[in-house]
Each structure stands twice: as structure tokens, then as C-alpha cells.
Design a protein around this nucleic acid. Structure first.
Ligand SMILES: NC(=O)c1ccc[n+]([C@@H]2O[C@H](COP(=O)([O-])OP(=O)(O)OC[C@H]3O[C@@H](n4cnc5c(N)ncnc54)[C@H](O)[C@@H]3O)[C@@H](O)[C@H]2O)c1
Ligand SMILES: NC(=O)c1ccc[n+]([C@@H]2O[C@H](COP(=O)([O-])OP(=O)(O)OC[C@H]3O[C@@H](n4cnc5c(N)ncnc54)[C@H](O)[C@@H]3O)[C@@H](O)[C@H]2O)c1
Lengths: 230, 230
DNA sequence: AGGCGCTTGTGAAGAGGTGCACAAATCGCG
DNA sequence: CGCGATTTGTGCACCTCTTCACAAGCGCCT
């Protein structure tokens, strides 16, 4: 389930706050989901709660981390140390969540050799050697869209089977390789859609309801992220 | 639908490549989805295709942009010009997709006044004045998690009803305000989960199937992003 | 020990997304 | 003008996810 990481973050926050146990209700609030959904999710990985009491925070953290495969720190390779790549390389929030940025790569010779956060940028040609040496398990692509497919092919060639792609394009990869994409422009456009929808809903009933600007039908609002708060 | 932006990107790419029309099959391949799904999605916003021919690329772009509310360029305010904020502020890919970063804010006095990409970083206290002046329609939060809720409250207070949150925390906002979050650690953890699952699946049938490392049940693999390519 | 309140785990119903398969519609060509 | 090739639009069945509601279980208090 894609919500497990969310639960994990909420659990860590609760653990830091000194809580020993949580009820499904409390954890659900912290994670921003329905309590029934949370219980069903957790029940899928076993019965780790105590009726009448709740869930043991520490135990649940261990269990979720175990299921997510976070028991060992995973090595991440970042390809494309540009604008965005710099920010990612300089981010220290990954280490605390079970990941270690193990290598930085770029194709631009003028960037190779640069040191960021204690890591030296290597040329992308060194990927095969370094990937084995550092036992890379996840590749992150932060290159321009045109180079992304090529980089993905290189990553796949050295045995990487999980890729996080920031370039705004679809990657074609062999079966068995997982790709997740993060496209910030898409996120903004979805927000724009909601803005537009809200504006239409509030304007039309008040005004004469001009058919020109009206949305054709209801147009289902499904963007797989719960949005309405509180 | 959350897939419309994806279609829009594919359509722009096709338009740049000189295509006048596309079949649902072709566009579906470019966007990485099923052709039936694409047709159903497009049918929700009207009949803009011609049977036997396909869709007019230009017309479809106009229609989707109209539905997404991208006919006018939307002004975006970015709060938190740190590591990540710098990368976002320096990114020129938003302008081409209908967004204009109109203002940068930070609470750190030493950052205020800094110029990035032609924009001056302002103090967050100026938000109310600038928000009205620039008619901000979307707020982006790139501050540490502890400050995120406060910034969200400030954004809501000045009338922003769409927020993109990069801080790893859940935001509580009034009804009618849309929040989308981008948490890179969660993306990595989902990939880690898939890595773990793949490792278990390939190792267990070969080895003796030690019950210790086995996943409890099947554990549905649902992460609302189609992953398997080609 | 027994009852009581609280919480988990889960069955079942409802809702919604997905993909197949096909009728309807359009264009090009003979 | 008619026919076939092609492609859209959609009814339908299937399936997953969501949510409610409640029984079962646990701890605590008397
Ligand atoms: N910067 C942002 O805030 C932002 C936001 C959304 C999306 N993106 C996307 O992220 C990607 C990177 O953005 P950016 O702003 O960092 O771009 P950038 O141009 O600053 O950096 C790209 C880097 O990739 C390197 N590169 C190019 N081809 C390469 C190759 N074949 N192998 C290895 N490295 C290669 C370049 O040398 C450069 O250093 C782009 O696809 C962009 O669309 C960025
Ligand atoms: N850098 C990354 O690659 C990355 C990746 C994933 C998530 N994030 C998240 O994005 C957020 C920002 O990350 P970062 O690396 O840029 O951190 P950062 O510390 O470099 O930048 C944070 C900025 O926010 C400013 N700030 C703090 N409180 C503020 C307030 N109340 N109002 C306005 N500005 C305020 C700070 O002055 C600072 O400039 C964090 O929540 C982080 O967890 C960052």
C-alpha cells in the first residue's frame, strides 16, 4: 500500500513525542486518513494491535519498515546534478528515512568533480563501476527530459530496477523495472483545475449562468490525493 | 481527471513534432495509458474527436487547457527559498506550462533581498500585500515541516485556495482549500517496497522459503501510479 | 471474578475506476 | 454513390478501494 510510508512518518512523529501506543483514530488523524481505512491497511500486514489499547508505536514502526524493506539503508544514485539535482543532493532528510545518496552523476564535464555535501560528482560513464561498488538499489533521474530515457536505459543496464523520474516524460523500461514519476507542473495543473472548478461553481449560480464558460458535464474530480482538510 | 495534464504534455510534444491529428491509440502510447481509458477520459469533456480520423491536436490542447483553467497564466507564490526553493525558483519549465512564479518569500532576513531568476525574495510578512498585488492563485510551500502549517495558515488567510506542499507533514486547512503534497521520501519508500517485494519473490521460490523474511500475505500492490513499462 | 468501556479486526454494502468489445460514424477510394 | 477501413464513443462486466457498522477481544475497575 502506498499509504504505509505516510503512516510511518506519523508514527515516527508520535514516537518522538513520547507516545508508547496509538489508537487507530489518533494515528489516522496524524496521517490524514479514515480510521477504518487505516485499520484495514494495518490488518493486511498482520495483527499488531491490541484491542482496547491500540497499536504499539515502536512495534508498528518496525513492522512497517520491515514490510517496506527499510531494515537496511538503501543506496540511491542521483543522475543529473543541475538545478534540482543540487537540491536533492543537499537534502539531509533522506538519510533519516532509510536512504543514503551514494553517488552523483552528470554528463557535463564541467560539473564532474564538484563536491556536494561530501559527495563528488562523477561522470555518468562511471555508472557501471560505481553502481556495483556501492550496490545501488534505486536510481533518481533529474536530467532534462530529452536525456531521461537514455539515462533510464543506462540505469536498467547496470541492474537498477527502481527509478524515480523528475523529468516530464514517460519512460519506457523493461518489465520488472518500477518507475515512479514526480512532475511538479502536473501537480500545479491539477491545482489549477480545482481553482477553475471552484471559480465556476461560485460564479455560475450567482451570475446568469453563461453557457460559454460552463464546464460540459460534472467531470469527475478524481486525483488520487485526498484534498479537503479538517 | 488527474490524467489530463499528462495528455496535455503528450499533445504539446506531438504538436511540436508537427502532427495535426492523433488517434487515441497514438496519444495513449505517448501518455503511457490504455487507449480505452484515454477515450473515456476525453469523452467526459465532450466529443472532440472525429471517428475514422482521430483527435485534432490543436483543438484538443485548447479544450484541455480550458478545462484545466490554463487559459490565463496563473500566478504562483513560493514560500521558503532554501535548498529546494532555489531549484523551484530557478526552474523555467513552469512558464511554458501556464504558470508564472510571481513572488518569493522567506522568513530568514539574510535571504530577503536576494535575487533569483529576476525575482527578489521578500519577507513573508509582505505576503498579504503582494498576494493581492500579484493576484496569487496558488501557493507553494518549501519550508521545513515545522513551519509548514503556519505558512499554510498565512496563505489561506490571504485568500489562497490551492497549495502545493513539499514539507513532509499533513496540513490542516479549511474546507474549500485544496492541498497537494509532494513527498520525495515517500516516493523512495514506495520504490523500496517494490524492491523488497521483488527480492522476496525471486529469492523465496529458489531458497528454502524461510518463514522469517516472508511477507505475511499477498499485500495488495496499489500505489496509484502505473509502473510496468513497455 | 465479573462487568464495563474502549479499540481492533472484518464482513458487507456501496461507489468508482478499468478495460473489453462493439455499434455508430467518418473518410477515402473505386 | 456505395463500400470498406479506421477510429471514436460507450454499454457492460469485473474488480478494487472505501466506508459503515458491529462482533470479538482486551484491560481496568470494582
Ligand atoms: N528545477 C526544478 O525545480 C524542476 C521542477 C520540475 C521538474 N524539473 C525537471 O527536472 C529535470 C532537471 O531539472 P533542472 O532544473 O535540474 O535542469 P538542469 O538543466 O539545471 O540540470 C540538468 C542536469 O542534467 C545533466 N545532464 C544532461 N544530460 C545528461 C545525461 N545524459 N546524463 C547525465 N546528466 C545529464 C546536465 O549536465 C545538468 O547538470 C528536468 O527534466 C526538469 O524538467 C525540475
Ligand atoms: N531539498 C530537497 O531536495 C527536499 C526533498 C524533499 C523534501 N524537502 C522538503 O522541502 C522543505 C524545504 O527543504 P529545503 O531543503 O529547501 O530546506 P531549507 O532549510 O534549505 O530551506 C527552508 C527555507 O524555509 C525558510 N523558512 C523557514 N521558516 C519559514 C517560515 N515560517 N516562513 C517562510 N520561510 C521559512 C528558511 O529560511 C529556509 O530558507 C522541507 O520541508 C524538506 O523536508 C526538500
Amino acid at each position: 500500500m502506498a499509504r504505509l510510508p505516510e503512516y510511518l512518518r506519523a508514527l515516527h512523529a508520535l514516537a518522538d513525542a513520547g507516545h508508547e501506543t496509538v489508537s487507530s483514530e489518533g494515528l489516522a488523524n496524524s496521517a490524514g486518513v479514515n480510521s477504518a481505512k487505516l485499520r484495514k491497511d494495518l490488518s493486511h500486514l498482520g495483527s499488531y494491535g491490541t484491542r482496547g489499547v491500540g497499536y504499539d508505536v515502536g512495534l508498528l514502526i518496525d513492522q512497517i519498515e520491515s514490510v517496506l524493506g527499510l531494515t537496511q539503508c538503501r543506496a540511491v544514485a542521483l543522475v543529473g546534478v543541475g538545478n534540482l539535482g543540487h537540491a536533492l543532493a543537499g537534502y539531509d532528510g533522506f538519510a533519516s528515512r532509510g536512504f543514503r545518496i551514494a553517488a552523483l552523476f552528470d554528463a557535463d564535464p564541467s560539473r564532474v568533480g564538484e563536491e556536494i555535501n561530501g559527495l563528488v560528482v562523477r561522470h555518468v560513464d562511471e555508472l557501471p563501476r560505481v553502481a556495483v561498488q556501492e550496490s545501488i538499489s534505486i536510481g533518481v533521474i533529474a536530467t532534462p527530459a530529452l536525456a531521461a530515457q537514455g539515462v533510464a536505459d543506462q540505469l536498467v543496464a547496470v541492474g537498477v530496477t527502481s527509478i524515480l523520474n523528475f523529468a516530464p516524460c514517460v519512460l519506457s523500461v523493461p518489465e520488472g523495472v518500477d518507475v515512479r514519476k514526480v512532475d511538479l507542473a502536473i501537480e500545479l495543473q491539477i491545482l489549477s483545475f480545482h481553482e477553475h472548478r471552484k471559480a465556476s461553481l461560485t460564479a455560475l449560480p450567482a451570475a446568469g449562468g453563461s453557457a460559454l464558460t460552463a464546464l460540459p458535464g460534472g467531470l469527475a474530480v478524481t486525483d488520487n490525493q485526498e484534498a479537503i482538510g479538517t
